[in-house]
């Protein structure tokens, strides 16, 4: 992971942590620790609605628009960081 990906992934982890603090519905009482390798679907068991809610926060933070189709391949925070960087540079 290069520096820019690392920085973006770190920011994404922060945004997701904030999102989960307000929306966590998992079985454990504490929200999980988010890292670049955290899998949003299998690891956090976010449903499709929650992933899209989180994406709206991400789009606003980075001032980008991510096409719905691009979301299909995203599993981890690191995957998302790469998409954010791609969209920013396009």
């Amino acid at each position: 992971m290069d520096n820019s990906t690392e920085v973006v992934a770190h920011k994404l982890a922060e945004i997701l942590t904030d999102y989960l603090e307000n929306n966590w519905v998992g079985s454990s009482p504490d929200t999980p620790t988010i890292t670049a390798q955290t899998n949003m679907v299998t690891g956090l068991q976010l449903d499709s609605f929650q992933v899209m809610e989180f994406m709206l926060e991400v789009e606003d933070h980075f001032d980008i628009a991510v096409d719905l189709e691009s979301l299909a391949e995203i599993q981890t925070i690191n995957d998302l960081a790469l998409v954010v960087i791609t969209v920013q540079s396009s």
């Binding site: 899209m52 709206l56 189709e69």
Partner: peptide, 26 residues
């Protein structure tokens, strides 16, 4: 929308500012 082949972006439910921001990015 998905079947149409168009690029799909979502905005926050009933949020005019969210809509406006995304239109601006286009």
């Amino acid at each position: 929308c998905r079947m149409s082949g168009a690029d799909i972006f979502r905005f926050k439910h009933n949020d005019v500012q969210s809509l406006e921001r995304r239109l601006g990015r286009l």
